[in-house]
Design a protein around this nucleic acid. Sequence first.
DNA 1: GCCGTTTTCGGCCCGACTGTTTTCAGTCG
Length: 580
Amino acid sequence: MKRNNAQIARLLNELADALEILGENPFRVNAYRKAVRVLQDLPEDVSDLLAREGEKGILEIPGVGSGIAKKIVEYLQTGRIRKHDEVMARVPSGLLPLLNIQGLGPRTIHLAWKELGVTGLEDLKRVIENGELARLPGLGPKKVANILKGIESLERTGKRIPIGEAIPLVESILEALRQEAPVDQLSPAGSFRRMKETVGDLDILATSSDPARLIQTFVHLPGVTRILAAGETKGSAIFEDRYQVDLRVVDNSSYGAALQYFTGSRDHNVHLRGIARERGLKISEYGVFRGEQRVAGETEESVYSALDMLWIPPELREDRGEIEAAQEGRLPSLLELSQIKGDLHVHSRYSDGHSTLEEIAEEARRLGYAYVAVCDHSRTARYARGLEIDRLKKKLEEIRALNERLEDVTLLAGAEVDILPDGSLDYPDEILAELDYVVASIHQWRKKEDLTERILRAMDNPYIHAIAHPTGRLLTGRDPYPVDLDAVAEKAAQTGVWLEINAHAERLDLNDPHILQVRRRGVRFVLGTDAHHAQQMWMMRLGVGMARRGWLSPEEVINTCPLPELRQRLQERRKRRSSV
DNA sequence: GCCGTTTTCGGCCCGACTGTTTTCAGTCG
């Protein structure tokens, strides 16, 4: 996210928190939160936008009207937002984080503050312990116990879950429910189904001949450490002290409406509801209604169709233009996992991977791939047992020999070559020329170093095909390194270098906002799992998820090519550069 | 605070669940 956008989003979010605790009009609070989400998603820094188009450009950001536009401009000019300062002066800052406690909302925080003088977490724990909180009107022992558990849960984890971590859990739950309970239809929903890079709660939707029994089975599955709710239509449980999973059971006639509703995103649904209202329709999780009459709901297709639009793939449902595209019949034909012909970034035992070439080939065959590129680290990457040239040559020989024996799958001799501080590459050109496929990447950099120039220079080398994990971010813990992605994308389009969508669960780099930012420049993308064990090659589906969220069609992704075409393209890149 | 092919004012998604209630408020998604 752009720096000014991130800062303004943070201030507006604080402002929203504080106003909520003060009891301000919830719609106003919501307007701030909406602006926060839009700013976080905006591909351009608002200062650039202001410089280029003036305040009118700011006003064109959806969800930003005159009030918030003024605050954005004020921040850019003074570094502050007066309204934020004023409101923050009225609310103890220690109260804001309390909104993250499950079971505790703004009304109760307000009450505890005004009645008991609570100004932070320590105060809150005190009035829970001494029983004061439970004596407030509307509260009682059970609510307070619930809040206490919310505090414990937040102190234990509180973090969003990477999608790659959620997938095995959700699939094991779905499997268990199919085996042990009366289920008919069953699907994940929520941000998990939209393949967001991190998910909060996990949502599952089902139909059943015996909903009560299904819900009871669910909340008593192995792994459940706490039951939050178990009603007629909804069960909610914490798995392994960490993952909240909600199961909702609905009637077959409203399954599609419920799936649509619980898949979200919230912004997508709000937008849909607005369109429904204009047409005298009402959408709920039970269906689409005209007055009392249900006009759609059995399938998701029927819901979208009732609003005169095409069914929208879940990965697009973020209110980023997909609704307009669906109305105008111009939704993209999205990349599918089944179209991926090979993995173009896997490590072997030669460097820091754990699988042999045979094991990698076998897994590729099992996944139905035609090829897989084994890209081990180059010599400078000593921490990762990067290959000296003699070992690289030995690997080349082994790959050639193995390819003689392999029938369905071809191994491509590759390397993940470090881009050195001066922008040169970690192997000489004559060595790179012997390799089928070369990705270049940065693993070491100085604090505050702007890496743009280094990457741009590397792209002048005719022997590299792609830039691996172009922003260097790690999903949990490390921000992107300072790099001007627009400049990189522009050069990539010029030179025919591809940009990697690194599908590793800990990276997802590029992610969907990055992809949306750069794809309009006409760059091509390549997917690689960066697997360090053959068993990690399943993560390709995470990369496909990012690509779909980035609106990519198969033509934009190199590894949808069959092997002969891929070889041709690999050669073209080298010819193209040498003829310039 | 935002927004507008019925609106520049009056809406803004809305239902489930729980706990505290004696008909509903708070929280959540």
